[in-house]
């Protein structure tokens, strides 16, 4: 019975998949742990739609339970994981820096071991134009700049950045 229902539904979804559209382009210019290269990598759009419709969103092997240490996987305090965080959260980080506060600032301040997320927010807001000189800077460059900014201000006391 279950098999029957399953197959029937499968056929139906095939029909929908056909209507739903074609694959999106696979042009990722960024490296590092950016959202584009990590989450949307290696999956044509149609497969992604089917996958998620049926609860099978797939993440890549970086995140296997047994894969051990990987920059894009670690959320322990430190420079590498702070950079990975900035790359993956780039769009939200940009907004929060411009706003001088926000969830990504709080979490970043914590990853970097800074003493006050409020001070970090205020400082990065002042540095917005240096971090984001144009929209074309890559995720990796943004992450390098943010970390340099934090390091350049000893009063922020971001002790976990090396």
């Amino acid at each position: 019975m279950r098999k029957h229902i399953t197959m029937t539904i499968a056929m139906g979804l095939l029909g929908v998949a056909a209507v739903a559209g074609t694959a999106h382009a696979d042009g990722y210019g960024t490296a590092g742990c950016g959202l584009g290269s990590i989450l949307f990598h290696d999956k044509p759009g149609i497969v992604q739609i089917f996958a998620a419709t049926t609860n099978g969103t797939s993440a890549n092997q970086t995140f296997a339970i047994t894969s051990g240490t990987s920059n894009c996987k670690s959320t322990a305090a430190g420079t590498a994981s702070a950079k990975a965080f900035i790359q993956a959260n780039r769009e939200a980080v940009a907004k929060d820096i411009a706003r001088g506060q926000g969830e990504t600032i709080t979490n970043l301040a914590s990853l970097a071991g800074c003493s006050s997320d409020k001070a970090v927010g205020a400082q990065l807001q002042r540095d917005f134009k240096s971090i984001f000189p144009s929209e074309q800077v890559s995720d990796v460059t943004v992450s390098d700049s943010v970390v340099s900014m934090l390091q350049a201000h000893p009063e922020l006391a971001c002790h976990d950045l090396t």
Binding site: L35, L39, T57, A59, K73, T75, F85, A88, N89, N107
Partner: peptide
């Protein structure tokens, strides 16, 4: 099917 472990921020962003 396998289990994956990834920072929660990826989930929030997605």
């Amino acid at each position: 099917g396998t289990f994956k472990q990834l920072p929660y921020y990826y989930k929030v962003r997605q």
